[in-house]
């Protein structure tokens, strides 16, 4: 029961998380799709997984909205690779999102509540 509840909660929670992880990986530096995938699975400790197709689809939307852009560079083999990066407005959007939604967890009281196991 507990596990099922946790799975269900996590499933809902993870929806919408992909954008944040994509943006964080691009803030880290220009990357092509495989590198973005690697970054996400490494730093999310495999809690966030993404299909290559959905990653491409998301990136196309962000490029269209001009919050992400790319430069084509030659890969080791085969066709050119698209190296994605955050544009200025993408970076600004990420910072706004972090300050409004993520930094809340930096509050002392909330931090304490997150780390405490007992109910006060």
């Amino acid at each position: 029961m507990k596990n099922k509840l946790l799975e269900s909660w996590e499933e809902t929670y993870k929806k919408g998380q992909l954008t944040l992880w994509i943006f964080l990986s691009l803030k880290d530096g220009k990357k092509y799709v495989d590198e973005i995938k690697l970054f996400i699975s490494k730093y999310s400790k495999n809690t966030i997984s993404c299909e290559e197709q959905s990653l491409y689809r998301s990136l196309r939307k962000y490029v269209h909205l001009q919050i992400v852009n790319y430069k084509s560079r030659k890969g080791n083999k085969g066709p050119d690779r698209k190296y994605y990066y955050l544009t200025e407005s993408g970076l600004e959007l990420l910072h706004q999102f972090i300050s409004r939604n993520i930094n809340l967890f930096e509050d002392k009281k909330i931090k304490k509540l997150l780390n405490e196991k007992n109910v006060n």
């Binding site: 929806k15 954008t19 909205l65």
Partner: peptide, 8 residues
């Protein structure tokens, strides 16, 4: 693009 589909 529909707002609700951008960050799905």
């Amino acid at each position: 693009l529909p707002k609700e589909d951008i960050f799905d």
